[in-house]
Amino acid sequence: MASKGNKDRVLPGFRLTLGFTVLYLSLIVLIPIAVLALRSGELSAAQWWNTVTTPRVMASYKLSLMTSLFAALANLLIGLLLAWVLVRYRFPGKKMIDGLIDLPFALPTAVAGIALTTIYAPNGWIGSLFQPLGLKIAYSPLGITIALIFIGLPFVVRTVQPVLQDLEADMEEAAVLLGAYRWRSFRKVILPELVPSLLTGFALAFARGIGEYGSVVFISGNMPMKTEITPLLIITKLEQYQYREAAAIAVVLLLISFVLLLLINFVQRWSNRRLHSV
């Protein structure tokens, strides 16, 4: 692919940079991942299928997907709200709030995990409030969802914020002049513009949630069939010397993530095209 149209390339360094990129990518990412697939391939097709579809594994997919989904949905709403408030309103402490949004991104997940567990355990600050109501937060899917909301918080906010900022004020103004009510103008004019970025943020939070380990493992309680997430199951398989099985489950998880990733890139390209065609 390098030879095509090489002549009209004015800038130097194409081969060097692309070569280095591909080399480094292969060494650090692609070859190791290929080994993973290879290793899981040591199982026969039937064994492979059995491994990745036993009830316990299925339960873990379901849990991982559901908690990530709910967390991503919650982040969709919270993220939209935060982006909206941060872009459109002025209030004291706004800059600080804006900075804090990125904290889950910079805070080590293990730290987040023990902090959240301390808060939501039955004897924790918030956990103890819900304990009398019979509601268990830590060591239940709800706790996992809360950890994932924390982890995914920045994604939606940071994808929506710039779009909201760029929204032409006159577009909205036109809507108001046409007599549209505020809620209507939000729904008909602003929201459609935000959909691609909302979707991207949602998918990012979702993808991150499925693979998350560090923060969840502290708060989940790790009950097989109930609060055992898929990444934890991989670790469990490893500890039982079942490398090939661990690799097989990892491949499934990897496929899910990869599909999501493709989806994100697709959404981004689609929205880019839409923007450019306007």
Binding site: Y139, G221, N222, M223, P224, L232, I235, T236, E239
Partner: peptide, 9 residues
């Protein structure tokens, strides 16, 4: 095991 609410690793 019905009486076990948390199964740590």
């Amino acid at each position: 095991f019905h009486h076990v609410p948390v199964l740590d690793s």
